[in-house]
Design a protein around this nucleic acid. Sequence first.
DNA 1: TGATTTAGTTTCACATTATGAAACGATCTT
DNA 2: AAGATCGTTTCATAATGTGAAACTAAATCA
Lengths: 263, 263
Amino acid sequence: MKLKMNKGNIYKVQSLERALDILDCFNFQDREMRLTEVVQLTGLNKTTAKRLISNLTARGYLKQDPRSKRYQLGLRLFELGGIVFSSFSLRKAAAHRMNLLQRTTGATVLLGVMMEDQLVYVDKREGHGMIRISSDIGWRRALHYGMLGMVLMAYLTPEKVRDILKRYPLEAHTPYSITDKNAFSLRLEKIRKDGYLSERGEAVEGIIGIAAPIRDYSRQVVAALGVALPIPQLSEKEDVQRIVDIIKISADAVSSDLGYLKI
Amino acid sequence: MKLKMNKGNIYKVQSLERALDILDCFNFQDREMRLTEVVQLTGLNKTTAKRLISNLTARGYLKQDPRSKRYQLGLRLFELGGIVFSSFSLRKAAAHRMNLLQRTTGATVLLGVMMEDQLVYVDKREGHGMIRISSDIGWRRALHYGMLGMVLMAYLTPEKVRDILKRYPLEAHTPYSITDKNAFSLRLEKIRKDGYLSERGEAVEGIIGIAAPIRDYSRQVVAALGVALPIPQLSEKEDVQRIVDIIKISADAVSSDLGYLKI
DNA sequence: TGATTTAGTTTCACATTATGAAACGATCTT
DNA sequence: AAGATCGTTTCATAATGTGAAACTAAATCA
């Protein structure tokens, strides 16, 4: 009879809209509401308000103090808010170290996380050199493609790694790329043993990549931090080792900021 | 025609329930969803899912990356979560004691509650002395995983414990983890008898956990307070007992602030 | 490059589902 | 104890949400 769609692609589901109107009643000033107050603020029918409130309460979006009968915003919102917040927190925790890394090494600095079995660049700092490493924030890649993805894969279960490699087969991007599954496994093992990855021209020719894992409170690897820089800039063995040390220290510092306790 | 009321005073508004089901698709691991994924996870009709998602997006509960078309939890949830966080009476009651604990023990201090049969971290103090919201607040875990969850489980009915263990089976996180149901029951009994839990490397290797329950005016256990610290820092028996005493006193103090009357 | 598959959007007829007036119960007030 | 206020439950009604189908856009393939 009536259309649910407004012009401008805005659908409205009345009962949902009303439920959200109820949540809107709560703010920093007014943290507690009784049913009648909600009714007054929203203009809803008492029964309707009660029904929606009960439903929201059952799902943890509101909670009721059984004594005063008053409602407050519930734990589920706290939890969901935490997820949103944590989307920023990694970047925030890493920001300072990334600036530092960029200044001290002059390299391109990259931060990435795993999302849906792929690598997503979360943040980056451009290097000084002429060679631009094309990786944009928010960009997705196959996990095994570059240094960050390989570091993240090193800490997955063997089953998960096998599953991912089946769906995203290894491919050669340069003559130095690893395309053999066994060689790849050994590489992952080495990453776990060393606590970092150092790679020379495997993802992009002429580019050295060095990366290390970032862990959070749960001790799980949640991100990878790495630098990419042109080989000519970094000929000496000692130079590589210097960068490796800096990366490991930086990644550890971010981990610690995320609540990781080093033993 | 049909009643909206289920037994047990639980009203269900279908479209609201479904909208909340959609929000449930998102968690710390899977922060991005495409429409099709939501459809698969919820079992909703594509049109219905789209309509609800559009509505949630219009209200800021979801946001869409216009390029990838993928959805994420929106800023409104962050905002509402912030209100909950700031008005958490438990958190407020515990804040002072947590600061004190962190200073006197130098350990990481954790506060957690039970939600939907899982543990949710509500607040924490870093071992280093910085007070900060880091990504792990709001994090969910299986109840039996760590010290806080075990303390909370100790005060549930045996039926509830059995039910939870059926849905979240015991698993070994370290060689010291309890994986036997009977041993686990005995452990819960010991917690009730002692009024605290002391655990050595069961959840995380090399970490000692000591935790105690917090009750409110209703005399029910509503939260758990605990510290985690490296075993090397705490070799002596007397040291452990010292911390145990401090934790029990702290948890009791918080309980008392929540209206719990001892006897 | 066009062909095929997959994902996202819009329409619209239909009946399931949300609605709210009214009556009832529970608390608080004096 | 009587009156007032707030919360809960019922149930008849139609307004509202629903989903199959058709459509368009965007990947993916060959």
